Simulated scan of single mutants.
Amino acid sequence: MAKVLIIEDEEGFRRQLELGLSALGHEIRCASNGREGVDVGARFRPDLVVTDWMLKDDIHGLHVIQVLRAILTHLKAILITGFASAELRENADSTDIIEFIEKPFTLEQIRSAVENALAAPCQPRQRASLAAIEITTQGEIRHANDAALDLFDETEPGRGIHNFFGLFSAGAEPNLAEALDRWEVVHPTADHRLAWHLRTQEPDEDGNRLVILRRGDGPQYIGLPLIEMLLGSISPQYARWPFDGRVVIVEADATTRKWLVTMVENAGGGCYAVESVAQAMRLLGKDDGLQFAVLDYDTVGAGLPSAIEELNAIRPDVLLVGNSADDRREAFVRLGVNLFLQRPWRADDLINLLTASIGN
Rank of each mutant, 00 (worst) to 15 (best):
V64A: 00
A331S: 10
V114G: 12
E205R: 01
E102K: 13
F332W: 13
G218T: 08
V186A: 08
L24T: 15
N91D: 13
K258P: 14
K76A: 00
G301E: 06
P316V: 13
L350P: 13
E8P: 06
L230F: 07
E330T: 01
L260K: 02
L284T: 09
D153G: 11
K286M: 09
A144E: 11
A172E: 12
N91F: 14
G269Q: 15
A144V: 12
T200I: 07
G41W: 00
K56E: 08
S276K: 01
N266L: 06
R35W: 11
V321E: 08
C122S: 14
E228K: 06
G270M: 07
S85F: 06
G322Q: 15
V49C: 00
E10Y: 01
A84Q: 04
A195W: 04
L68Q: 01
A120N: 10
L295T: 00
P124F: 15
A113G: 14
L130S: 00
N360R: 15
T299D: 01
G34E: 04
V50W: 05
N175Y: 08
L210D: 03
L350W: 07
M1T: 03
Y297R: 05
M54T: 08
E90A: 13
G285I: 07
A252C: 06
R14M: 08
T355S: 11
E8V: 06
R329E: 09
L55Q: 03
L350H: 03
I222E: 05
P124T: 08
F83W: 13
L55V: 03
V40T: 13
G336F: 07
R43F: 04
N208H: 03
A92W: 01
N116L: 08
F13I: 04
P188K: 06
L311F: 02
H187Q: 09
M263I: 02
G218M: 09
G160C: 14
Q342N: 10
R89Y: 10
V50C: 02
P219S: 02
E27I: 14
F165V: 07
P236W: 01
D348I: 15
V248A: 11
S169G: 12
E27G: 15
W196V: 11
I28A: 12
R246F: 13
R142K: 14
V337A: 13
D244I: 14
A117V: 01
G41N: 05
L48S: 00
R329P: 00
H63T: 08
E178L: 11
A179V: 07
L353I: 12
D287K: 00
